[in-house]
Simulated assay, not measured.
Amino acid sequence: MEERKESKHKKNSQQKPSLSNKQLLLKYSGLAFQMLVAIGMALFLGYKVDQWVGLGFPLFIIIFSLLALALLLWQIIKDTNKPNEEN
């Protein structure tokens, strides 16, 4: 009986500590802010390139915004699949 308690205690002490709720909130709010900035920059850059090229169709706005969304999705998947680490 004593061995079971000791082995459970050893297993619990060997596990890495998980992130607290505040740290998770900061992590994901930072990720949301990155998303807003990246999409805003992609839209602005696409708008300026469309003005410079003089197309009647907003081609670069569409291209840059879709590219930003794809990169952001990759970033989100990469960040959320990481094991929780204590910094």
Results as ranks from 00 to 15, higher is better:
39 I>V: 15
82 K>P: 01
9 H>N: 11
69 L>A: 04
67 L>F: 11
33 F>G: 09
48 K>L: 13
2 E>K: 12
84 N>M: 10
36 L>M: 15
38 A>G: 03
17 P>H: 12
2 E>G: 03
47 Y>C: 03
67 L>W: 04
54 G>T: 05
51 Q>L: 13
20 S>L: 06
24 L>G: 01
38 A>W: 07
68 A>W: 03
61 I>M: 14
80 T>Q: 02
17 P>L: 14
8 K>D: 13
4 R>E: 11
57 F>P: 00
63 I>S: 00
44 F>H: 09
37 V>W: 08
52 W>L: 14
31 L>C: 03
44 F>Y: 13
3 E>S: 06
82 K>Q: 14
55 L>P: 00
3 E>T: 05
31 L>K: 01
77 I>W: 06
7 S>N: 06
33 F>Q: 11
5 K>M: 09
58 P>W: 03
39 I>M: 15
61 I>W: 02
55 L>Y: 07
78 K>R: 05
71 L>R: 04
33 F>M: 14
54 G>K: 04
5 K>E: 13
1 M>E: 08
63 I>K: 00
49 V>F: 04
34 Q>R: 13
23 Q>S: 14
44 F>C: 09
22 K>Y: 12
64 F>Q: 02
72 L>A: 01
18 S>W: 01
40 G>I: 06
47 Y>W: 11
39 I>F: 12
32 A>F: 12
3 E>I: 07
6 E>S: 06
26 L>G: 15
78 K>I: 03
76 I>F: 01
23 Q>E: 15
6 E>Q: 11
22 K>T: 13
57 F>M: 02
63 I>E: 00
49 V>L: 12
78 K>F: 02
59 L>T: 12
40 G>S: 15
18 S>P: 02
44 F>P: 01
76 I>W: 02
62 I>N: 07
61 I>R: 07
42 A>E: 06
70 A>G: 03
71 L>N: 07
79 D>R: 02
73 L>H: 04
